[in-house]
Amino acid sequence: MLTELSGWAITAVAVLGVLSVAAGIAVFVVDSMARATFALLASFLAVAGVLLALDLVYLAVVTALMMTIEMAIMAVFMIMFMMNPAGLMPMTMVHNAKASAVMGAGAFVVLAVGIWTIDWPTRNPPRPADSTRQLGEAIMGSHMLVMLVIGIALFATILAGTILATARGRYDRLGPGLDATHPDDPVPGGLPR
C-alpha cells in the first residue's frame, strides 16, 4: 500500500490543488496584466502549500520565496511592456486561440488518460526522517553532477543576461540590420563601414 496522507493533509491538498488550477486559468482570463501576475503567484503559492503537505518543507519554502520575488520582478516588467497594465479596458491579445486551446486540452487529456489507466506500484517504501537532509546529502554526494551543471548553467545565464542587457556591442554601431550609413559612435572617429 502506498503511504497514506492524514485527513487534514488531504483537505489541504484538495483545496490548494483546486486553487492552483483556478489561479492558473485566471492568468489568461483577467484583463489586467498586473492581476495576471498575481494570479500566477497565487498558483505558485498553492503548489508550494501542496509541497508543504507532502513533507517537502525545504522545496516548499524555496518555491514560495523564489516565486514571490520572481513575480514581483515580473510585475515591473509587465507594467513596462504592456499596453494595458491596469486592465482599465477589456482587451485580449491572443493569436490562434482555438488551436492553442485544442493543443492544451489535448495535452491534458493524453496525460490524464495515462495517469488514470496506469497500474501504479503498490509498495510501502521507507520514508526518510528529514526530506531536506535527504536532498542536501544527495546534491552534495551522489547527485553532485546535477549541482555542478546547475552552477555552470546559472553562471552562463549571468553572462548571457549581462551581454544581452548591455546597450550596444561592437557590431551594433550600424544598427540591428547593419545598414546605417553612419556608425552611431559616442565619439566621432573610428573605422567607417
Binding site: 483546486v18 492558473g24 492568468v27 489568461f28 495576471a36 491579445m93 493543443m103 492544451g104 495535452a107 491534458f108
Partner: peptide, 24 residues
C-alpha cells in the same frame, strides 16, 4: 495530484501558444 499537475501543464501550454505578448 498528478491530474492537477497536468491541468497546470495544459493551461500553461495554451497560454504559451496563444498569447501575443512575450511576457505572457
Amino acid at each position: 495530484l498528478l491530474t492537477v499537475a497536468v491541468a497546470l501543464v495544459g493551461v500553461g501550454l495554451f497560454g504559451a501558444l496563444s498569447q501575443q505578448s512575450i511576457v505572457m
